[in-house]
């Protein structure tokens, strides 16, 4: 009531914290935006320099990559196939596992079971990926994959890397999908039960479609995580760039190439150094496209309830 009597004095007496907070928030946001713009700028600049020396057509259609052994060839499809192969295997493994886990957690498990299982699942996501890489290289391949495939599978293989990355992203899918399923209003489920539906029918025909946008988002998020994963893929997948879709072969993913070149001593103006940025930019565009698709999918499948 006092405030209404003197609105002018109210604005003047705005507490210091109120005056500071807005610029502070703005600053924090701006920092993020500036960083992103800076990264995109550097990527674009160096990539253009790369394409002045190597034709983009050769880069995007070539299937042969040899950055350090003469004759130098830069066909990014060789690296891309490695990335796509590993991410593909990972998704094939993680989607069913993750979704089934999400169904269990959201629909079937008692609260007690959930409070135990969910944090355990999420622990997997917290394991440093280099550890998972070693797990793939020193346990998975020799003890599980070698007995199955014999000598046709190498020490380093896309399959081993794919499985490890699949394990890595399963909790991501499970967790986000579970959240989406639990957000489905209770009324929908009860309506279905009232019509005589069984629990499995409710899960399949009510909860799943209603949560689909969230589930799709989780899968696409997991896919971009898989594409960007580095250490596990370097360790388990190897460093041999080749254009192949054979999961038993050793591959080099785009991120693995970036690691290999940046660990050495590549001079700043060399073509190898520039190629890092071209590969990074390609990777960036790939995940950007995935994120755009994700946004599209989410809005398209969103069911209003």
């Amino acid at each position: 009531m006092n405030g209404a009597a003197a609105p002018g004095s109210f604005t003047r007496r705005k507490p210091a914290s109120e005056r500071i907070i807005e610029p502070l928030l703005f600053l924090a946001t701006a920092l993020g935006v500036v960083t992103t713009v800076g990264i995109v700028g550097v990527l674009a600049y160096e990539t253009v320099e790369f394409f002045l020396r190597i034709s983009p057509v050769d880069f995007f259609t070539g299937t042969h990559w040899s950055a350090s052994i003469k004759p130098y060839t830069f066909g990014v499809l060789a690296l891309m196939s490695g990335t796509v192969l590993v991410a593909g295997i990972a998704i094939i493994i993680a989607v069913p596992l993750g979704l089934l886990a999400a169904f269990l957690l959201s629909e079937y498990a008692s609260p007690r079971v959930r409070t135990v299982i969910k944090p355990m699942l999420e622990t997997i996501a917290g394991i440093p990926t280099i550890v998972l890489g070693f797990f793939g290289l020193y346990f998975l391949t020799p003890n599980l994959l070698k007995p199955i495939f014999g000598d046709s599978i190498g020490t380093f293989s896309a399959l081993s890397a794919g499985i490890v990355v699949g394990v890595l992203i399963t909790p991501l899918i499970a967790s986000i999908s579970e959240d989406a399923m639990r957000a489905v209003p209770r009324g929908l489920r009860e309506g279905a039960y009232a019509m005589g539906a069984t629990k499995f029918e409710v899960v399949r025909k009510v909860v799943f479609p209603a949560a689909l946008s969230g589930i799709m988002a989780s899968i696409i998020l997991a896919a971009s995580r898989a594409i960007g994963e580095t250490m596990a893929v370097v360790l388990a997948g190897g460093t041999q760039p080749q254009f192949t879709l054979d999961p038993l072969e050793s591959v080099q993913s785009m991120t693995a190439f970036i690691i290999q070149i940046s660990l050495g001593d590549t001079p700043q103006d060399s073509i190898q150094f520039k190629s890092l940025f071209a590969v990074a930019a390609t990777l960036f565009v790939m995940t950007l496209i995935l994120n755009l698709i994700s946004n599209r999918v989410v809005s398209r499948f969103r069911t209003g309830y």
Partner: peptide, 21 residues
């Protein structure tokens, strides 16, 4: 050299590779 070999600056990686296949 051939372009179809797995390369690593870390010789232990090479040891692992040969020891595994």
């Amino acid at each position: 050299a051939t372009q179809f070999a797995t390369q690593s600056e870390d010789d232990n990686t090479l040891v692992t590779g040969v020891a595994g296949s």
